[in-house]
């Protein structure tokens, strides 16, 4: 996104409202995400016409209809490709992709990987409700083991994909997680994603009230969440728990949960470095799972916040450099020289 030179618009969250009736189920986590997005965008100082929301198909993908910006509700799983094409046409836009766990990890998994790998300057928000909402409740690739759904009677027995691990493996330069009901945190993360140069991947835990209610209760219930979440802050030790006395220590290549003061001192606690060039630690964090019914032996607090934020050249920057190079070497192409490149002959 280019910096605009015009005076910064002063926008209020309500300026992003459209006249369309919002049609998610009452209590759906999507409402909160919509509200936080409006707050985040209003703070950016970017005019509305430079913002575009591109989505696939799913409950989550209805999002663009409710944002008074440019919007494109495309087809199942393909939003990253259309967003990429848009960036090629106009590198001056802030382009958001809204996708779901089915849309982004199943049918569109391939595009997700390649958009992240190329570091196209798009902001991908994956609304993870661990279920297919729009098609009325089938298990998804992120559904945890044992998920009961219409297509998994007796419980799902497929190993779920870990969205953050996948994004890191795909060389994503910005990887973060937030939660639908943690409103301030979400606004902050959305702002961070908007400011990141390159592709940003944000997983949002989103409650599907109808088909998967409560899967994230351990992360949202005030009485337990402090023990189950690890709020990441750059440069700060990884502490968590109601009394912030628990932390993460590295034992060789193995992370472990320790109690500060009992098992070790504060100095032994891992310090979070989101800007580390090497994504190995971010990857370790991405595998922290709280729920022991999943494929882990011991519970870990699930990280929220920014796991990784590194600046690398974007696809658009690299392509522009190639174009500039071609023009520098041979001049800007004109019709007159287009046809004459090969051997020609003249008939009188």
């Amino acid at each position: 996104m280019a910096v605009t030179t015009a005076p910064l618009p002063t926008l209020k969250p309500d300026d992003f409202k459209t006249d369309q009736e919002v049609r998610w189920c009452p209590g759906c986590g999507d409402y909160s995400i919509l509200a936080q997005m409006k707050k985040a965008l209003a703070s950016l100082g970017i005019p509305r016409e430079k913002m575009v929301f591109i989505s696939g198909i799913g409950c989550s993908s209805r999002f663009p209809y409710y944002m008074n910006t440019y919007g494109f509700h495309t087809i199942h799983g393909r939003a990253p490709t259309i967003a990429t094409g848009l960036r090629l046409a106009n590198p001056d836009l802030l382009v958001w992709v809204v996708t779901g766990d089915g849309d982004g990890l199943s049918i569109g998994g391939n595009h997700l990987i390649h958009a992240l790998r190329r570091n196209v300057d798009i902001k991908i928000l994956l609304f993870n409700n661990e279920i297919y909402g729009l098609t009325k409740g089938q298990y998804s690739p992120s559904s945890r083991l044992g998920t009961l759904s219409k297509t998994s009677p007796g419980g799902s027995f497929e190993t779920p994909v870990r969205p953050l691990s996948l994004a890191l493996a795909a060389e994503a330069t910005f990887v973060a997680r937030t939660i639908d009901v943690d409103v301030q945190h979400m606004v902050h993360i959305l702002q961070r994603a908007a400011h990141h140069k390159g592709s940003a991947f944000v997983e949002i835990y989103q409650n599907c009230k109808i088909f998967n209610d409560g899967v994230f209760e351990y992360a949202t219930d005030k009485s337990v969440k402090a023990d189950n979440l690890l709020y990441l802050e750059h440069g700060k030790p990884m502490l968590f728990g109601k009394d912030r006395n628990k932390g993460i220590r590295l034992n060789g290549l193995k992370p472990e949960v320790v109690e500060v003061g009992k098992d070790c001192g504060l100095d032994d606690i891992l310090v979070h470095d989101e800007s580390a060039e090497d994504p190995t630690l971010a990857y370790l964090l991405s595998r922290f799972v709280h729920d022991t019914s999943r494929d882990v032996a011991r519970p870990f607090p699930e990280p929220v916040g920014v796991l990784r934020a590194v600046r690398k050249p974007t696809y658009e920057e690299l392509l522009d450099a190639r174009i500039a190079d071609a023009i520098a070497r041979k001049g800007r192409g004109k019709l007159e020289d287009l046809f004459k490149a090969e051997d020609v002959w003249t008939v009188e």
Binding site: I54, F72, T74, R78, P80, T81, I82, A83, T84, G85, L86, R87, L88, A89, N90, L93, N110, H111, I113, H114
Partner: peptide, 22 residues
């Protein structure tokens, strides 16, 4: 030019570009 990951992405690129005025 954009060498896409598959033909679906390739047409998606073209549609996105058209949407943007290319």
């Amino acid at each position: 030019t954009f060498q896409a990951e598959d033909e679906i992405a390739a047409v998606g690129i073209a549609i996105g570009a058209s949407y943007g005025g290319a």
